[in-house]
Write a protein that binds this DNA or RNA. Structure first.
Lengths: 334, 334
DNA sequence: AACTATGATGGAATCGTTTCCATGAACGGT
DNA sequence: ACCGTTCATGGAAACGATTCCATCATAGTT
């Protein structure tokens, strides 16, 4: 019904119109050598016919799809949205399209998506691998075998894959210094499953600062809002002795604020709260939240850079975090 | 250094291994007819060689790239992030990859991205077109000419393109009914540039409810946080007579809360505030914000459905909004 | 028993591009 | 004037899949 669907104009049409061979057209269009006269004729013909080269043909010949695959746990999470923004902005400056997939932190879905990427002959992937490494070996083996250029972001789960991460340990340490300086001793850490590295940093920081670590004060939750809320509420009810909380992500932090409000625990009067990730609402919250800011956008940008630059060797870069002090922490009161 | 980069296994390898022709392999793998015996042999060979068909080859032959292009103004905006999530979730159930681009609400960047999509031979696009239509004609003409299957989301700027939008007018009307019921008369609307449809709905709602519309009470801002803040602050300082605000998006709402706090205007005591879009932080805010919730995720899902179903005709679907009353509105006090 | 209908099968063309290679012209040096 | 070098140029071969078409065998019909 759409009228005679016109055939796409191909390089052959241009060659014919310009009276040259297809090879010459290809050369001119991709900056090869040609006489000024032919170059002009070809360019004119291409413009006249509104010719756009087909990425399909090119990629098939070149044996690679340009473009970047991006795998993240949850696009709805402000942190990953920002990271995605960083990747997109870098990719744009290289003119590379980005294909996004959400894994939901599920290794199985992750594996599926990797398969799809390979099928698409994508040759560059940036991923926030699901969990902290337990299954990463097998999950990512096919991708590496297929010759994909993989860069991990936010988490580092294999030594042989370059990674761009935030310096979580330093962030945790600063936060602990701050809380301990305020007199807190019973500090709990709300962790997402798989944040083993951060948990380790937490206990290390505490012991290095002379505070005995209490294993019961590390509680785990899945990435969902429900799970986070349940974990926080449980902690708050079971351990009235905790006076400070470190939330390992903005979803956890959100849950903490909500649960505290529900249980009539006041922040910062009853418990102090520090949250990972500086999201817009941290400032709008009541009280405004003190946060460990990670450079989400930069993380994505640098990862994309690493993926796009080809002459790089497996190196992992760690970006600094920053403690943004607002009003959710106070001196110990009980 | 990576060892001898193994050549990808092709359909030819499988054919050879199974002792059949390539045509047969293709047929078996795409569900065509074949004898049980050959089918088994081919499948076994494919599995043994770990064969994955190349999307490149297939697409070139089929003259189309599967997959969906998604163009949104800003992935960092919680509303668009959710919409994106909806698109991804629908696409996943069809096994289609999604390529995301951000336009920044800039028609020029939009046009660039459309060009890239065409070059990729994408045949399905979901887009939140930049602005409200002024330039949409020319911007989208090449895409339609190239035979792309375009679906607009969130905004409807061309009658010949199916669109999935929220019923903004109804949302605005309900909000106005609520505010006027609380006694407010001087109500301002903070609009993003290009929300002409919503502005019209705003004035219509006011007049239909018997309140004279004041053109000075509609202020415009660009999509950025800075611009939004400036617009709100200006309004609050110039028009101390306004007693209620309707913010046309979550970025505007954020700016409103921030500016009000800065200028010592208390919500809801001094001015009432209703914001478009129910974002997680609306509940965490102080006070919790009353919002016009649009079904962001559904919008994306339905748009993707429309784009993927082929036997559809240009129709636009409008999804209902919901007024979620929290604590940011009170009776008129001055 | 001959002939047709049916179904499985493989060869080859095709999609649009890049790139290798051969060809021929122009040019400069001896 | 001859030869070697350089350079522009076009033909043709990939790349990996799908699909048309011809071929052949087998089963079914008269």
């Amino acid at each position: 019904m759409n009228g005679p669907m016109q055939r796409r104009t191909t390089i052959k049409d241009v060659a014919e119109a310009a009276g040259v061979g297809v090879a010459t057209v290809s050369r001119v269009l991709s900056g090869g050598s040609a006489s000024a006269q032919t170059r002009e004729r070809v360019l004119a013909a291409a413009a006249r016919l509104d010719y756009h080269p087909s990425a399909l043909g090119r990629n098939l010949r070149r044996q690679r799809t340009g473009g970047i695959g991006l795998l993240i746990p949850d696009i709805t999470d402000a942190f990953y949205a920002k990271l995605t923004d960083g990747v997109l902005s870098c990719a744009r400056s290289y003119g590379e399209p980005v294909t996004v997939g959400v894994t939901g932190d599920d290794p199985e879905r992750e594996a599926e998506l990797i398969g799809a990427l390979i099928e698409q002959s994508m040759d560059r992937v940036i991923a926030v691998p699901s969990r902290d490494g337990e299954t990463a070996g097998e999950t990512w083996a096919p991708a590496l075998r297929a010759g994909l250029n993989v860069v991990f972001a936010d988490r580092r789960v294999r030594a042989d894959v370059p990674s761009v991460v935030a310096d979580d340990a330093a962030g945790v340490l600063t936060a602990m210094e701050y809380l301990i300086g305020l007199g807190h001793r019973k500090i709990a850490f709300l962790a997402r499953h798989g944040q083993s590295r951060r948990v380790a940093a937490f206990t290390d920081a505490l012991t290095s600062l002379g505070v005995p670590a209490d294993r019961g004060l590390v509680v785990h939750a899945r990435a969902s809002r429900d799970s986070a809320y349940a974990a926080v509420a449980g902690l708050l009810q079971n351990r009235p002795d905790v006076t400070a909380l470190l939330a390992g992500g903005n979803v956890l932090g959100e849950a903490a604020v909500l649960a505290a409000r529900e249980l009539d625990v006041r922040i910062p009067k009853d418990v102090s709260l520090i949250m990972f990730d500086d999201v817009p609402w941290a400032e709008l919250c009541s009280p405004p939240l003190t946060v460990v800011a990670r450079p989400a956008q930069d993380l994505g940008y640098r990862a994309a850079e690493l993926a796009l630059r080809q002459g790089r060797r497996p190196r992992t870069v760690a970006l600094p975090t920053e403690l943004v002090v607002r009003a959710s922490c106070g001196p110990r009161s009980r």
